[in-house]
């Protein structure tokens, strides 16, 4: 099997590490060779963050380069645009519609681009956009944005629903399982 690449992108502190952990557990349980690469340290302080998840028969490079990602899961829409050049032709972007202003926008030296998702669609990207923040809040916690988005990713993914739920149960803390299941379902059925 050819290697599949998923990029998880967002703003430091949005929970991308948990999402990649869940994917790692899911894909390992399916018997794939898996590599997950993330960067710790300075970039986590509210900066743009990216995690690479790759799986297949044999994975070599832990990172994903321009034009190589099969999926991009984005926790924030500006980040979806930032990393869109990494998307493979025909790849899919699952993105939260939430807007988080970066410091240059806050200080007024840059503008947050309007209609950014429309622009990506016009460039030929397949976009699955959803208000994951509202769905996460509906599930019980704004922090579950990551799980809502994975639920939506699961919909267009070849691995069956039950395997995702099992991976979720082994990844999140017991007291948060029910809330996260709800978040996953809300994403899955959105």
């Amino acid at each position: 099997m050819k290697t599949t690449g998923i990029m998880i992108v967002g703003v430091g502190g949005q929970g991308s590490l948990l999402a990649s952990k869940l994917l790692g557990n899911l894909l390992t349980a399916q018997g794939y060779d898996v590599k997950v690469s993330e960067v710790h340290g300075m970039s986590q302080r509210g900066g743009s963050v990216v995690t690479y998840v790759k799986f297949g028969d044999r994975v070599f490079s832990p990172i994903i380069d321009l034009g190589e990602a099969d999926y991009i899961v984005s926790f924030e829409k500006l980040e979806a645009a930032r990393y869109a050049p990494y998307l493979k032709k025909g790849g899919r972007i699952v993105t939260n519609t939430q807007q988080i202003d970066p410091m240059p926008v806050i200080t007024g030296t840059a503008e947050y681009p309007q209609d950014i998702l429309e622009e990506l669609k016009n460039l030929g990207c397949r976009i699955d956009a959803l208000d994951a923040l509202s769905l996460a809040e509906e599930a019980g916690s704004a922090k579950a944005v990551n799980i809502v988005l994975l639920g939506r990713l699961a919909k267009s993914f070849h691995i069956e629903y039950d395997a995702w739920i099992k991976a979720l149960e082994t990844t999140v803390k017991p007291k948060f399982i029910e809330m996260n299941k709800k978040a996953f379902d809300l994403g899955y059925h959105s």
């Binding site: 300075m42 380069d65 645009a81 050049p85 032709k89 926008v105 947050y112």
Partner: peptide, 20 residues
Amino acid sequence: KEPENVQLPNPVPLRPPMMC
């Protein structure tokens, strides 16, 4: 050869790390 990819017409504003 490099894989084909999307080229954004405008640069995306940077998101540097910052104090919390």
